[in-house]
Design a protein around this nucleic acid. Sequence first.
DNA 1: ATATATTTTTAGACTAACCTAAAAATATAT
DNA 2: ATATATTTTTAGGTTAGTCTAAAAATATAT
Lengths: 219, 219
Amino acid sequence: MFSQSEENYIKTIYHLEADFKKGISTNAIAKKLDTKASSVTDMIKKLSEKDVVTYKKYQGVTLTDFGKKTAANIVRKHRLWEVFLVDKLNFSWDEVHEVAEQLEHIKSPKLINELDAFLEYPKRDPHGDPIPDKEGNLQIIEKSLLSTLKENEIGVCVGVDDSSSEFLRFLDKQGVALGKQIKVVEKEPFDGSLVIEMDGKTLSVSNKIASNLYIQKSR
Amino acid sequence: MFSQSEENYIKTIYHLEADFKKGISTNAIAKKLDTKASSVTDMIKKLSEKDVVTYKKYQGVTLTDFGKKTAANIVRKHRLWEVFLVDKLNFSWDEVHEVAEQLEHIKSPKLINELDAFLEYPKRDPHGDPIPDKEGNLQIIEKSLLSTLKENEIGVCVGVDDSSSEFLRFLDKQGVALGKQIKVVEKEPFDGSLVIEMDGKTLSVSNKIASNLYIQKSR
DNA sequence: ATATATTTTTAGACTAACCTAAAAATATAT
DNA sequence: ATATATTTTTAGGTTAGTCTAAAAATATAT
Ligand SMILES: [Mn+2]
Ligand SMILES: [Mn+2]
Ligand SMILES: [Mn+2]
Ligand SMILES: [Mn+2]
């Protein structure tokens, strides 16, 4: 059984590995967890002791299979709770993260399995991120950043890269939501902005937005 | 904002005060929390510092109004989560306590208010205990231990005193549940056992059970 | 290749929440 | 009333998780 703090480290390493492969640096972890590198070194030693990570001094850290499974289970809980908050308790997608950050640490296998069933086995969380199954496997879908699409390409909005409240609320204001069909009408090379068609209307989105929105291209 | 540990102390003092009025002893708290008296003294000082309790050395501890409100809010969360687990996630009434013990510490006013609404504002938890409202008030109902009823008195089962898994599962086995009508047929002075009528059948219950079951008498 | 900058680890401290053992206060029994 | 028992507090330690500052290792730039 892991402490809340240990779980937060494990989850963070998992997310960093998804982005940057093996050998996650002390500093990278410290930055994500808003703590100091020296604290990370301490914790890393403990996690290595517990066979969650492999660790060679100065070489960064990598999750073991056991560590990966543990991490996936925490992520599974986090995302299932997010679905619960949005689907059942009227939270909006920009409000769920902080609470899920707490709920993910509740220890009860029955709770999480029953929650999964109650929510009818959702496959993705409110931000479009996949929910790992009990074994820790998660299905990856083919998705591309909106900014990488070419003119006239069409797709469906399936996720966000940055899921900060600010970004999500901004998307709300623009009427952008998961499941919406988007067509790239025009790309502006000067500032990287795009003119897109959505809900039959055309609007312009900045490069900043376009490089944070995931699109599943229509074949 | 209080730590999980502080919250557990506050809640425990609250429950003890309900049973024994003011001036809760260090030892009583230690026993309930399964910790040492010296640890309790430490924590009591901190809580007194934070104006949760009033404390005079060797005189025991009493919740302030602020302390009472804080406690009631924790109890509110505990009981609402218990209702959720039973009503929505197929937990039985003997399985919920341990999980609610964790869930009660989640910090999010919106979460608990939405949960309350989602559950349609329940008034009692699965054990018949009242759920405090947002202000910390809880409605008390007139209830008596089954063991105090006289022959031929009739009432409805509305709660349990001991809510240990063992007792609750035993009640399940006997077919006793909240809401069941019970009539005292006969009292056995020798061992304090009772013959009762329930669901049209008569059965005998030991004194141990009769003094852990709350009945609301039919006027 | 060497100097400089950056990253990582170590050393030493702090706080929260525990503990044991001893001392002090209070309660109980004769 | 005094002696004894019990309860409560104090004193001093431990562990988890954090911090700052300094030392060591590694990376980068000339
Ligand atoms: Mn968390
Ligand atoms: Mn999410
Ligand atoms: Mn608790
Ligand atoms: Mn209960």
